[in-house]
Amino acid sequence: MHTYNPISALLVFFSIGALLYFLFRPSKGWYWILKNQLTSNEKTIIEDVLKQLYHFENSNNKVDMKTLVHMLSFSNKKIVDAINIMTVNNLIYFESDILKLTEKGREYALRIVRVHRLWERYLAEKTGFHKIEWHDRAESMEHRLNHDEVEELSRHLGHPKFDPHGDPIPTKTGKMAQVKGVELPLLQVGAMGRITHIEDEPEVIYKQILAENIHIGSLIKVVENNVTRIVFLSEGEEFKLAPIVAANLTVAPLEKEILVEDNVTRLSSLTENETAKIIGISRESRGESRRRLLDLGFVKGAQVSIDLVNPLGEPNAYLIKGTSIALRNDQAAKILIKKD
């Protein structure tokens, strides 16, 4: 105990603390970086290359080595190595400069796409991650699941055909459903439809769509459509999008004319002494939380009013089918109502 003095003890303590922080802080910690580098092995690179090629070929674009290196965030050498292995294994071939998928390569790529989209679906239905994170998480997960795990996952999700952006999920045998619908700018004023797909690339545009309250599966009605902007109604709100943004939305026009309620608002905007009728639950609410709301009686046509206002503003208690049920504001904002 000779060398002890409080200051040096504190110094030792804080340096250990700082070290731990730099090692383990989320995403930028040295430990994670190192781990990532070790695990981003050959397999990952090969699978990423395959996926890129697959997407490019699907949109009828051609890829040479240069664009590929540009697209992927691995070192030059690693990519070249991977490409060599892939040609030897008959996954890709060169047509002059252009890289092309072989039949086998295409199959492999489809498998990766399948895992990616299934995992996004899983994240959307069964976890609490925010939709902004779905893509990146799926991106790292797609290299990790083996065949049996993927099948189990698919079964667990009820063999879904579309991912949460509306992209079709390839089946085990590589078949894919068709996305129904047309790009939003092609709809006439007054037309109604259901959003079936939201394109997630390029990211800038996708982020813009995410920021709005636009959700797959919700009904829309076009009210204005010209070269500068497209205006439409969805779940009681009006959205104005530039045509280039709107083109990232695919909408299936409705066959039958159905009645769309106007003056739709959100349960969160209900005030004391008002009553309202429930129109439905926003498509933003999915999976378990949607089911729970329905079970609690928040179904179309039900009468609702505020039973108790919370002293801290949230959650308020709503009187629904004879019982008082408290919901937080973000939940109440997902319930569509029409005030009486």
Binding site: K126, G128, S289, R292, L293, L308, P315, I325
Partner: peptide, 15 residues
């Protein structure tokens, strides 16, 4: 915010 991030979270309270 850390380890439990992403676990499903729902809320309802019957009075």
């Amino acid at each position: 915010k850390t380890v439990l991030k992403g676990e499903v979270s729902t809320f309802n309270l019957e009075l």
